[in-house]
Write a protein that binds this DNA or RNA. Structure first.
Length: 763
DNA sequence: TCGCGACTTCAGGTT
DNA sequence: GAAGTCGCGA
């Protein structure tokens, strides 16, 4: 056969990996080494060589990575039958087919973190433990860790019940089995159970394992360095009959040890699978020489590591810079201004920029600053769209329709909107239901029989249960319609439907957004399973998946360092490179070298996302836990070759209209400038919340806010609501408007370029 | 039963 | 800064 066309853009080593046909293969791929390309091309080659698409299983960690690979494969192979999935999705799929074997029904519910906490609370109170004394989150973390290591409830009990373990662990030993019982009786699983159940399915029923093993002749796993024990065993179970397993990964990018990932899985791959072919991809196609060198000098300080050569033929580029700021508000403001001016100069587009940070909580100041400077941005994570109360409430209604056994969902919605069914009535009903072995809905239908149930509450419960019984996908016709029916019959949005209050309007918009997401889903999937499918999608989706790729000038992207893995941007800022933050204090506490080195890998991952420019920042004071705290620069900074700069020079003294190129070593920011920035920072204005919903709708572009507000025009302010412009003053970036708000006779003056005012209509 | 305000406690990353 | 708990009054 001739050299296939698709080899033309590949290096010899890459081709070697692509051409590998059968048997185990380990691809050790450094950052930016074209790993995804190798994987997709290999799949395309397999198909070319006659492998059926449905005999191939490609597994990634995030939905985003799965979608991306799926997309690339479609263009490469024209095959629709190729399944690229995340571990969790794959397991959900298998589990729906074999639910009965582990005691579930196929319509089981996948609980998210909030549901899980609720379930733990319920269990705690049944066991007469005070939730205040045993934080549900901590209990869950311990249970989750156990599950990641494949320690089941009985095993956990066996290990700890009678031992002299600490008190808390002993309590968990009581809660864990009760929690599992609760899940089973609710026909529900948590994230970890998805994996756990499948491992048991495969390990205890070899005929089932064998069936899936035969079905998936070729298994490919991405980011293998992040697999945990359960995932490891699933992969193993699928690679017994046919050993065509190929995994890709990079030990230097293992950053999920806290979630139970075992870096050993990739390190011992060659021992696990005899005759493994090993391919090393060390040439970087992404970053400039100086950026790669800086990242390399950092990671070479890890001792628990196999040395690796990172090379690139890219240009040398600019040095990595460390920007030092007096405090975090100035840091945020300077970055926002720098980005804005770089874009206005025509040098770059918004989408060229990404800002990474160690913890979500420090994104707030950045968001405020970007909003003030009308920089369009999107945030991965933050307060997830699907975590919002109104969205969760409605999804709980749908879930209850799909799975009437779901107790968490029942509890969530039984008194929302208020129906006069209080805590006491609820717990009477629950006791009754459990005594009689009924679902809560069934029990509610006979609320009259429940001991001590007040007449009024009983009537409400019966009405509620009858209403729930009348909801069905078949009657409504589509998921979107079903949501609309629920909203209407329950009167869910009534309290805020005609409100002018900003928060209420936001809620309403979120409900609309959910409906349109459902409509979207309706058009893609067949009607019969679509409710289940929709619910599965909503529970396995994250805000990361809502991120937009290239679209015109796009948006600046904000995310945690963890979320950044697998992505790349021309310009990257990594903020807060300070001791106790990066490395995080938890990794320093007990001098745990494994955790400490994971922090270093995390910074390494972040740095290697950058193509052309990389800025690291540190501030002398940082707002943390609600107050401004002095900081110490990160020890990691001493391990990197970089240029140090007073970060405030980034943006010092821009003229009002024209753009002045940023010379990093130019004049310093004067005290007055710092004061002016601070004054602006203390303004009571607040940019609009950016929700995943808004991102999806593509309408959060703060930059598109109108700049001129003629006297008499109607405007809206996120905090003060609707108002009318009564006066204007100043010019250029200092232009001000005075607005009279409808509420409370309030009148405020704003600097137009720094406030979140929105023009309404044409008047 | 519900809503409010005062209070405490907690704050790592993701499927 | 946010979220959950508690006690009070309507």
């Amino acid at each position: 056969m001739d050299v296939p066309i698709l080899h033309q853009q590949l290096t010899p080593v890459q081709i070697e990996a692509v051409e590998h046909f059968s048997g185990p293969m380990l691809v050790l791929a450094g950052p930016g080494s074209g790993k995804t390309r190798v994987v997709t091309h290999r799949v395309a080659r397999l198909i070319e060589k006659g492998v059926k698409p449905w005999n191939i299983l490609a597994i990634t960690f995030t939905n985003k990575a799965a979608a991306e690979m799926s997309e690339r494969l479609k263009t490469l192979t024209n095959s629709q039958n190729l399944w690229v999935s995340t571990f969790h999705r794959f397991c959900a799929h298998v589990l729906r087919q074999r639910a009965g074997v582990v005691g579930l029904q196929p319509n089981f519910t996948i609980l998210d973190t909030a549901d899980q906490k609720q379930a733990i609370r319920q269990v705690l109170s049944e066991l007469d433990y005070d939730a205040a004394h045993y934080p549900p989150g901590k209990i869950l973390a311990m249970i989750s860790n156990a599950k990641n290591d494949m320690i089941t409830a009985p095993m956990f009990v066996g290990q700890f019940e009678d031992s002299v373990a600490d008190h808390f662990t002993a309590v968990v030993a009581k809660v864990y089995p009760a929690y599992q019982k609760y899940l089973l009786s609710s026909n529900a699983v948590d994230f970890d159970d998805l994996l756990l159940h499948v491992v048991h399915l495969f390990e205890e029923h070899d005929e089932i394992r064998s069936q899936y093993d035969d079905r998936y002749q070729y298994v490919l796993v991405d980011e293998y360095q992040d697999t945990n024990e359960a995932q490891y065993r699933i992969v193993r179970a699928l690679s017994q009959n046919s050993r065509n397993l190929s995994v890709t990964g990079d030990p230097d990018q293992s950053i999920y040890g806290w979630r139970g990932a075992k870096i050993d899985n990739i390190l011992k791959f060659e021992q696990d699978y005899q005759d493994t072919k090993i391919i090393k991809l060390e040439q970087n196609f992404r970053s400039s020489k100086l950026i790669l060198a800086a990242a390399d000098s950092l990671i070479s300080h890890n001792r628990l590591r196999k040395a690796k050569e990172l090379t690139t033929e890219n240009a040398e580029g600019e040095p990595v810079e460390l920007l030092h700021f007096p405090d975090s508000p100035v840091e945020a403001d300077s970055i926002a201004r720098h980005i804005r001016h770089t874009v206005e100069s025509g040098e770059r587009d918004w989408l060229d920029f990404a800002i990474f940070y160690r913890v979500n909580s420090i994104s707030r100041q950045l968001e405020l600053a970007l909003g003030r400077h009308h920089v369009p941005y999107q945030v991965a994570a933050g307060v997830a769209f699907y975590q919002r109360a109104e969205v969760r409430d409605l999804l709980a209604y749908l879930d209850l329709v799909n799975n009437p056994q779901n107790r968490a969902a029942f509890v969530r919605v039984v008194n929302v909107p208020l129906r006069g069914i209080g805590k006491t009535s609820q717990s009477r009903l629950m006791n009754y239901a459990e005594d009689k072995g009924l679902t809560y809905i069934e029990a509610a239908l006979q609320a009259d029989e429940v001991p001590k149930m007040p007449k009024r509450a009983a009537a409400s419960l019966k009405a509620f249960a009858r209403m729930m019984e009348n909801f069905s996908l078949a009657d409504s016709g589509s998921v979107a319609q079903l949501i609309e029916d629920v909203v209407e019959k329950t009167g869910y949005t009534r309290p805020w439907s005609s409100s002018q209050n900003e928060q209420d309007m936001q809620r309403l918009a979120n409900v609309e957004e959910l409906i349109s997401a459902a409509r979207n889903h309706d058009t893609i999937f067949d009607a019969d399973t679509s409710l289940e499918g929709f619910l599965e999608t909503t529970s396995l989706v994250s805000d990361l998946d809502a991120l937009e790729g290239d679209s015109e000038k796009g948006k600046v992207t904000l995310m945690t360092l963890h979320a950044a893995k697998g992505l790349e941007f021309p310009v990257v800022y990594i903020i807060g490179v300070e001791q106790n933050l990066l490395p995080h204090e938890r990794s320093l506490r007990e001098g745990n070298p494994r955790e400490y080195e994971e922090e270093r890998r995390l910074l390494f991952v972040g740095m290697t996302r950058a193509e052309e420019r990389l800025y690291l920042t540190a501030s002398s004071y940082r707002d943390l836990h609600g107050r401004s705290m002095p900081t110490i620069p990160s020890d990691f900074l001493s391990e990197i070759d970089l240029v140090q700069t007073d970060g405030t020079t980034l943006t010092s003294d821009f003229p009002e209209t024209a753009y002045r190129p940023t010379s990093l070593a130019s004049s310093d920011l004067s005290d007055e400038d710092v004061k002016a920035i601070r004054a602006a920072l203390n303004r009571p204005d607040k940019p609009q919340l950016t929700t995943a919903a808004a991102l999806l709708a593509g309408n959060n572009s703060a930059a598109s806010l109108p700049f001129n507000f003629p006297i008499g025009s109607s405007v809206r302010h996120p905090r003060y609501g609707l108002g009318t412009v009564t006066a204007a003053g100043g010019f250029g970036h200092r232009r001000t408007v005075t607005v009279e708000f409808e509420e409370e006779d309030r009148s405020e003056t704003f600097i137009v370029s720094k406030c979140p005012l929105q023009r309404i209509g044409n008047r």
